[in-house]
Amino acid sequence: MATTDTTSAARTRGLPLPALLALTTAVFVTSLTETLPAGLLPAMSGDLAVSEAAAGQAVTVYAVGTALTAIPLSAATAGWRRKRLLLTAMAGFAVANTVTAVSAHYALTMAARFLAGVAAGLAWALLAGYARRLVPAPLQGRAVAVVMTGVPVALSVGVPAGTFLGGALGWRTAFALMTAVAVVLLGWIALLVPDRPGQEPGRRVPTARVLAVPGVAPVLFVTLVLVLAHTVLYAYIATFLDRFGLGGATDLVLLVFGGASLVSIWVVGAHIDRRLRALTVASTLLIGGAAALLAGFADSQVLVYAAAALWGLGWGGAPTLLQTAVADAGGEQADAAQAMLVTLWNAAMAGGGAVGGALLGLFGARAFPWSVLVLLLPVLAVVVGARVHGFPARRSGA
């Protein structure tokens, strides 16, 4: 009996990796579907008989679909069982990527991309909370970290691989492959991911009231401004580097950033259950350090690579930190809080592109790292100030 009890305790302490890796793959599909057009724009624009700028709206339309639908769809499906909802979202990706792969018409392609964004809104509002429900409270942060690994893998491996496949076999093949991954994932989820119930009707509150829950508003503010700061620089990194004669090194700079992001996720996963507040402060300071290096020493290739490493170390674990913080603060309304975070995240990404374009036109590429530093000041102030609710020194249940 003692041996049985010990084995049971060990299983309770361990992470259900087959289930969590299925959720990681769902994050990978979501992230790669969003960013894949970036490496395929010339071929897409040629096939669809539109300009590259028009083809680039495939990314914008996706983000709009997510931002517009994440909150209302999350509220409408709050009572759905989690597996059913996740399967629906992944089926949405399969349909959207299939239509994108075969479409010969620009309007139909944009409609498919909007559908993919809607599926992403469902998925992003669901995945972190689902991962938390699969493990005991002391392992929830680590479970979310495992699932969020799909983001840097998609950006650092998936996008270059998709771009290569698009060049070798055609851009439609890259989207068809995404459909194949989504179909395999549907079976994986059906077989190996445990189901969990949705929210009981009596416990739901209007989405607007979620903002009144202590700690939710500070986390959402930090999310909005931190993602805005990151996107202002990330969206124009090639332009910034080209300004200092390093345009040819953009791929290597992003590779360093991606590798450091993976390290960041590992560190955050190992310590988030005990040090969420300290890690969030460190993340903000690391991104600030990277911006300071780029602001003062962008003409030094060595220091640019150092900045990319600091940036990746600060940014890689940020999605895990913010989703864990908002879920902790939201409590029983965690799913609604997650939906609000997803909406603000996508709004900040869209806003980052717009703000970056304005800065480039008014002040030139040198303004990018300085704008990051300015935006990080209120982020750091809110994180430090929200020591009771939002970013507490010790997580409840950890």
Rank of each mutant, 00 (worst) to 15 (best):
L286T: 02
A365Q: 07
A306Q: 04
A367V: 09
G312I: 11
V326Q: 04
G289L: 04
L293C: 03
A308R: 06
A348G: 11
V342D: 09
L321A: 04
G331Y: 01
A292P: 00
L341C: 12
G361Q: 12
L285A: 05
G296D: 09
A295H: 01
A306C: 13
V374K: 00
S371E: 06
A295Y: 03
A337V: 00
A325T: 05
L344F: 12
V342E: 09
A350P: 06
A318S: 13
N346L: 07
G317M: 07
L293V: 04
L376T: 06
L313P: 05
L344M: 13
S300G: 11
S300K: 13
F297R: 14
L362G: 15
L341Y: 11
V302H: 11
A329H: 03
W370Y: 06
L285V: 10
L360Q: 13
A354F: 15
A298D: 03
S371N: 09
A307R: 05
A292K: 02
Y305N: 02
Y305W: 01
A334N: 05
A365F: 05
F297A: 15
F297S: 15
L313D: 08
L376E: 00
Q338V: 05
G331E: 02
Y305H: 04
G357M: 12
L322S: 02
L360E: 13
L344W: 11
A354Y: 15
W311C: 08
A358W: 13
A291C: 03
S371Y: 06
A325N: 05
T320K: 01
L294Q: 02
D299R: 15
G330H: 05
S371H: 07
A334K: 05
A329C: 01
G361S: 14
F368T: 05
T324Y: 07
G296V: 11
D328G: 07
F368K: 07
A336H: 07
G312L: 12
V326H: 02
V342F: 10
V372A: 00
V304S: 03
V355H: 03
A337M: 00
Y305S: 04
L303F: 10
N346R: 06
S300F: 10
F297K: 12
A290S: 13
R366F: 10
A327G: 09
A365S: 07
G316S: 08
A358I: 14
A354E: 12
G296H: 10
V355A: 09
A358T: 14
F368L: 15
A306T: 11
P369G: 01
L310K: 06
W315F: 14
L362H: 14
T320Y: 05
L286N: 02
